[in-house]
Amino acid sequence: MTAQFLTKPQAAELIGVSVRTLERWARAGIGPTPRKHGPRLVRYDRDEALGYLRTGERQESAS
């Protein structure tokens, strides 16, 4: 199974928050984990974002 990666705007829309909220969560270590795919390219795993949406819990990220 191949992971699908979302941009910040796509992940924010899927979860139902703003991009700024998603960025703030990333700095606080909560929400879906942002993954760097280059020096400035950040993506979110779609399955992880959906899992966060399903549980609604603010879990600490692994990074």
Rank of each mutant, 00 (worst) to 15 (best):
F5S: 06
Q10P: 09
G29A: 04
G16I: 14
L53H: 09
L41I: 14
Q59Y: 00
A11F: 02
E13W: 01
S18Q: 12
L22M: 15
S63Y: 11
Q10M: 09
G56A: 08
R40Y: 13
T33A: 13
S61I: 13
Y52A: 04
P34H: 01
L14D: 02
R24A: 15
A11K: 03
I30Q: 02
E48L: 09
L41A: 15
D45R: 01
L6V: 06
H37S: 12
L14H: 05
A26R: 03
R35H: 13
Q4I: 13
Y44L: 01
T55V: 08
V17T: 14
M1S: 11
E60H: 03
T2G: 14
S63A: 15
E23T: 14
D47R: 00
P34A: 03
L6C: 08
T55N: 08
P39G: 09
V42D: 04
Q59I: 11
F5H: 12
P32T: 06
Y52L: 05
Y44D: 01
A3P: 02
E23K: 08
H37N: 11
R27A: 14
R40F: 13
I15N: 01
S18F: 03
Q59A: 08
A28H: 11
T33R: 06
P9K: 02
R46E: 11
A62E: 12
G51C: 08
M1D: 10
T55I: 06
E48Y: 03
E23F: 05
V19T: 15
T21L: 10
Q59N: 07
W25R: 02
L6F: 07
R40W: 11
A26K: 06
R43H: 12
S18H: 05
G29E: 08
T21D: 04
S61W: 00
G16W: 06
Q4S: 10
Q4M: 05
L6R: 03
I15Y: 10
A28L: 12
A62T: 11
L14G: 10
G29S: 04
E60Y: 00
Q59W: 00
G56W: 04
A12K: 03
E23A: 14
I30G: 00
K8H: 05
R46L: 06
T21S: 13
G16K: 07
D45E: 12
R54N: 11
R54F: 08
G16Q: 09
E48F: 03
K8R: 10
G16L: 11
L50M: 13
I15P: 03
